Simulated scan of single mutants.
Amino acid sequence: MALSDNIKGAIYMSAAMAGFGFNDMLVKAATKTLATGEIILIRGAISTLLIFLLALHMGALRPLKTVMHPMLALRVLAEVTATFTYIYALGQLPLANAGAILQFLPLAVTLGAALFLREPVGWRRWGAIIAGFVGVLLIIKPGPDGFSIASFLALACVFAAAARDIATKQLPQGIPTVFVTLMTSLAVTVGAGIFIQPLGGWHSPSITDVTLLGLAAVCLMIGYLALISSMRTGEISFIAPFRYTYMIWALALSFLVFGDLPDIFMLAGCAIVVASGIYTFYRENRRRTGLPAQSLPHAPH
């Protein structure tokens, strides 16, 4: 594959992470005045409409009975869980801390694939998973002075998202990506409507609140579209490490918008998680291709 395709894929991946970073910043800003349930409901309604129009344009709509496929149903349930837990955690934690915990996701997917799909994982990647989890512990600082329910929910979001990604790998090729995204967004929105009272109830949103969540929905759409484009353009081994550019946005926005400064434990934990994730991508590519280390493409520092 031409290097230019890899560069394009890396740009798409970086753009996706920027979209997700700004989405998280806007959602966190909305948590100052709105409860978790109504944030998910309002943003979800806007996102679902946008995705529906895109799916209609692409001819990607399918019969609703398609949702009954076990892996699609599992993916939808896992996404609902991940969304609810992450948005609640985002309202309680600094943006950079919540985002840093989420960077454990690729390692959690590797762990889940080994345990449930029987994919081979060597001792080096097991070591990277353990190191990454140690990094997460540094970020959440378990103990009476550091641990909180929000930290636990952010970690729960990671494992729910890992279940979502593993289920996605098992979906039939004939189900379009946009349709999967549409059904997931619809389920999240309906779930928020059903459980809106336990999730904080309804408080009449201001025009500012709706604008924030409308922009968040657009950023989320940009993130998903750029992510799909990156996976279809470049080699995964080259573009996957650019997933961690999310932390640049999370750290910058956390400081510039909310005035949050990360402590040394958060920075050290984040560095360990990111390094472990990149090493896992490297080992997976080497296992798959059988190429010596020096012949693999390197992401820029």
Rank of each mutant, 00 (worst) to 15 (best):
M1N: 09
I7A: 10
G9S: 07
Y12G: 00
Y12K: 05
A18W: 04
D24W: 06
M25E: 10
L26G: 06
K28I: 06
T33I: 05
T33S: 14
E38F: 04
S47K: 06
T48N: 08
L50Y: 03
H57F: 13
M58S: 13
M58W: 11
G59N: 08
G59F: 10
G59T: 05
L64F: 14
K65I: 15
K65Y: 09
T66L: 07
V67G: 00
H69Q: 13
M71F: 13
A73Q: 00
V76S: 01
E79L: 10
A82L: 03
T83C: 12
T83R: 07
Y86C: 10
I87S: 11
I87F: 15
L95Y: 10
A98C: 05
A98F: 00
A100L: 05
I101S: 01
I101M: 10
L105A: 04
L105H: 00
T110L: 14
A113Q: 13
G122I: 05
R124E: 06
W126F: 06
G127P: 04
P142F: 00
G143H: 03
G143C: 08
F147Q: 10
F152D: 01
L153D: 03
F159D: 07
A160D: 04
R164I: 02
I166L: 13
I166K: 01
A167V: 11
K169R: 15
L171G: 01
I175D: 11
T177E: 08
F179V: 03
T181R: 03
T181K: 00
T181W: 01
T184Q: 07
T184C: 05
T184R: 02
L186W: 11
L186N: 07
V188L: 09
V190Y: 03
V190Q: 02
A192K: 05
A192G: 12
Q197C: 00
Q197I: 12
P198S: 06
L199Y: 09
G200D: 07
G201Q: 02
S204I: 12
S204G: 12
I207L: 15
D209N: 13
V210I: 15
L212Y: 12
G214K: 04
L220Q: 13
S230T: 08
M231S: 11
M231L: 15
R232F: 00
R232E: 14
T233K: 07
G234Y: 06
S237K: 03
I239A: 09
P241H: 07
F242K: 11
R243L: 06
M247C: 09
I248Q: 02
F255N: 01
V257R: 00
V257C: 08
F258H: 09
G259L: 04
F265W: 15
L267A: 04
G269I: 01
C270F: 10
I272C: 05
I272Y: 07
V273Y: 11
V274M: 14
A275V: 03
F281W: 08
F281D: 01
F281I: 13
N285G: 15
N285P: 01
R287C: 05
R287L: 15
A293L: 10
A293C: 00
Q294F: 13
S295Y: 10
P297R: 14
P297V: 10
H298N: 12
H298M: 12
P300Y: 09
P300S: 14
H301M: 14
